[in-house]
Computed example of a mutant assay.
Amino acid sequence: MERTLITLAGSTQATLIDQDIAHIGRVMRPSLLGDLGGPILPAAYWRKRLHQLLDTSQLSHAQLCGVDSLLLQLDQFEASAQPAWDELPPATGMPLRPVHAVTAYPHI
């Protein structure tokens, strides 16, 4: 009976690790790209999360490959030139013209 509980706990942990890797894979890049205010979460945060996963014992080969792939993506993102929002040219100050609705049926 104890062996079944250990296997179940190990299986549950592996599932949680798989879910964490998948979650980071989905949200890391949009978080790094952020918005006009900059990144939502910095690269250092994601690197720390990925290294914490590497520090867990007994990652499967597929999990190791997933974490390694995410670390490579993070390295590539950091190596690429990021847009400098502060260096955008100033607005021209020209007023915007109103946009008129175009109807598909001119007789309406």
Results as ranks from 00 to 15, higher is better:
60 S>L: 07
81 A>H: 08
70 L>Y: 00
67 V>L: 05
55 D>E: 13
100 H>K: 13
46 W>F: 15
19 Q>E: 15
53 L>C: 03
30 P>W: 06
15 T>D: 09
44 A>P: 00
87 E>G: 02
32 L>M: 02
99 V>L: 15
13 Q>D: 07
72 L>Q: 13
25 G>C: 05
23 H>G: 05
40 I>D: 06
99 V>M: 09
79 A>Q: 15
20 D>R: 14
48 K>T: 13
83 P>V: 07
66 G>H: 04
26 R>T: 09
30 P>S: 03
37 G>F: 04
65 C>H: 12
71 L>V: 01
104 A>T: 10
69 S>A: 15
45 Y>L: 04
105 Y>T: 12
41 L>Q: 08
52 Q>T: 09
92 T>V: 03
22 A>L: 09
59 L>E: 02
73 Q>L: 04
25 G>D: 03
88 L>K: 03
11 S>G: 15
72 L>T: 10
35 D>W: 06
44 A>Y: 05
56 T>K: 14
101 A>L: 14
66 G>A: 06
54 L>H: 07
5 L>M: 13
30 P>E: 01
18 D>T: 08
17 I>K: 05
96 L>N: 11
79 A>M: 10
11 S>I: 02
35 D>G: 11
51 H>P: 00
18 D>M: 01
106 P>N: 05
93 G>F: 06
107 H>Q: 11
41 L>M: 08
30 P>D: 06
58 Q>N: 12
67 V>R: 03
21 I>L: 03
21 I>P: 00
21 I>A: 02
46 W>I: 00
39 P>N: 06
104 A>Y: 07
9 A>T: 06
48 K>Y: 09
95 P>T: 08
11 S>D: 13
53 L>G: 02
8 L>V: 08
86 D>C: 02
35 D>R: 07
61 H>K: 11
60 S>M: 05
67 V>S: 00
78 E>M: 07
104 A>G: 09
50 L>C: 06
16 L>A: 12
22 A>N: 07
92 T>K: 10
39 P>R: 01
48 K>Q: 14
11 S>V: 02
85 W>S: 05
31 S>K: 01
34 G>W: 02
107 H>G: 04
69 S>Q: 13
75 D>E: 15
57 S>K: 14
